[in-house]
Design a protein around this nucleic acid. Sequence first.
DNA 1: CAGAATCCAGCTCGATACTG
DNA 2: CAGTATCGAGCTGGATTCTG
Lengths: 120, 120
Amino acid sequence: MQPWNAYSAACPTRRVLDRIADKWAVLALGLLSQGPVRFNQLRRQIEGISQKMLSQTLKNLERDGLVHRKAIATVPVTVEYSITPLGRTLIDTIDGLRVWAEAHIGEVQKSQTRYDKALA
Amino acid sequence: MQPWNAYSAACPTRRVLDRIADKWAVLALGLLSQGPVRFNQLRRQIEGISQKMLSQTLKNLERDGLVHRKAIATVPVTVEYSITPLGRTLIDTIDGLRVWAEAHIGEVQKSQTRYDKALA
DNA sequence: CAGAATCCAGCTCGATACTG
DNA sequence: CAGTATCGAGCTGGATTCTG
């Protein structure tokens, strides 16, 4: 845990955290890890996302090289998004967090309840 | 990657991601993992944080059971924050992300540069 | 279908001032 | 020392409208 002894905008960890801080990004990447999908298809799968956010999220993911965008010249245009190998290594890493979450969410919830009760 | 096929506010992973989305929380937890510290001591170590945010961050971490707050009745009061065993398991998990970040940040950056250049 | 552009309500967060 | 309270600027993100 060395790099955390000082706040630094250049810290790689922080930059990655900033990216996955965006819940939509993680959600989208997770879905894309199951196979390529089109824009509106993805939108329907991520219930609650606005198309502005999906567009923005995908653009960021593509910029980071985590997702690949492929435009197919049909009429009307079809765009297929897929996860890149790099993206796959990230989602695999995030999976560790998923495991932690599912293992400990009960404990966290209990702590919250206790905390809230102590205030009232 | 099952739980991601639908957006759900109850999804444990998402709740954990929401917590660590807060960059200050991760920073603080990381520092606390090195040993107990007092409020202003911590504040000095996390350069750039406002005391409002530190206060808020620590309160959230305590509520989740990730951090322990111990008030010592001196004059003036001393408050010592320390990481809990649960918090330690989380920071260990986040460490996987740190490893990923340090291994792949170069690749990400290259992709970004390429992407930006393609637009201009 | 796959977006881009605009508008604006709401929340975040820093700055400041005050307290036990 | 370790906070709380209040206020306002600014960013975020949803809703809506329009396009190739």
